[in-house]
Amino acid sequence: MSEAVTAPAAVGDSEFDRDTAVTEREPGLHDIDLSDGWTIFGAVNGGYLLAVLGRALADTLPHGDPFTLTAHYLSASRPGPAVVRTETVRSGRTLSTGQASLLQYDEEGREVERIRVLASYGDLDALPDDVRTSAKPPAIPPPSQCFGPEDSPVPQGDQQPIADRLMLKLDPATVGWALGQPSGKGEMRAWFGLADGRDHDPFSLLLAVDALPPTAFDLGISGWVPTVELTVHVRARPAPGPVRVAITTRNLAGGFLEEDAEVWDSQDRLVAQSRQLARVLRG
């Protein structure tokens, strides 16, 4: 007897959607329980957190699609209850701008701000379809020729929780660090999707730009690389299917590095770009 085939999760009805949904307590004030399923070494992933705030702003602003978000990560978020405060800064005909903060409480009951975001939203479907670009999609082998967490020598039970929620297939040219042979180029490329098969939307792109192993690994540096600031530009609504993510670092100085990311959809369109500044904490 053949095994039953599980249908891919639909946008709006997946684990990612449930775990990023906020509940409005009153206008401008939202509650969420941050899931421990999106953690790395106990800290909640920055891309997942940006998607949480992104969805809260979509519920607040008159426009529903994120165009640009800039987030400053002030302290590490932990799984558990959190509050998201949102505010409309300006509403225009084609763009609206808002700000959001995510807060938790420390052991002594004091309010601690974790992230602050300033963002502009619009309607991606209303954008003209002209494209003039010199950018080219990354040349990544097919997923069957790439490597995922299941190929790691680390036992599956020792993987970080977020790995179970992602479909991540790394370009073999960028996995030398896992074998003790980093290239030194500061590059990371991969096919990226959600493990339950959910197609991408603008909010999952906010996760995609911050879900790959840090480029510091390819520079021969181990240890945690916490994000200080992350800016994401969403350029188009992605087509169905996995996306390709390419990240590069050109400069590491003073204990900080930048990561420039491009996200390409199945129709070879550049659907998102980002730059982040991260701190290198050597292991």
Rank of each mutant, 00 (worst) to 15 (best):
S75Q: 11
A76V: 10
S77G: 07
S77W: 00
R78P: 01
P79D: 12
P79Q: 07
G80P: 09
G80D: 12
G80R: 06
P81C: 08
P81E: 12
A82E: 04
V83F: 02
V83I: 11
R85W: 00
V89K: 06
V89L: 15
V89I: 13
V89C: 07
S91Y: 00
S91P: 00
S91W: 00
G92H: 03
G92W: 11
G92V: 05
G92R: 03
R93I: 08
R93F: 06
L95R: 04
L95Y: 03
L95M: 12
S96K: 00
G98C: 05
G98S: 03
Q99G: 12
A100Y: 02
A100Q: 01
S101E: 15
S101D: 08
L102N: 00
L102T: 00
L103N: 05
L103Q: 08
L103R: 06
Q104A: 09
Q104Y: 02
Y105R: 13
Y105E: 14
D106M: 06
E107S: 12
E107N: 09
E107W: 02
E108V: 04
E108R: 09
E108D: 14
G109Y: 01
G109L: 05
G109F: 03
R110M: 13
R110E: 15
E111F: 00
V112C: 05
V112A: 07
V112D: 04
V112E: 08
V112K: 06
E113Y: 01
R114M: 14
I115K: 03
R116C: 05
R116G: 01
L118T: 13
L118G: 05
L118Y: 04
A119V: 07
Y121N: 06
G122T: 01
G122R: 01
G122N: 06
D123A: 14
L124D: 09
L124T: 05
D125A: 12
D125Y: 03
D125K: 10
A126V: 07
L127N: 08
L127Q: 13
L127G: 06
P128G: 12
P128M: 11
D129M: 10
D129V: 13
D130H: 10
D130T: 13
V131A: 14
V131M: 10
R132M: 14
R132I: 15
R132S: 15
R132H: 15
R132F: 15
S134T: 13
S134Y: 10
A135L: 15
A135N: 12
A135C: 13
K136E: 15
K136W: 09
K136Q: 15
K136L: 14
K136N: 11
K136V: 14
P137I: 09
P137Y: 11
P138V: 11
P138C: 13
P138Y: 12
P138G: 12
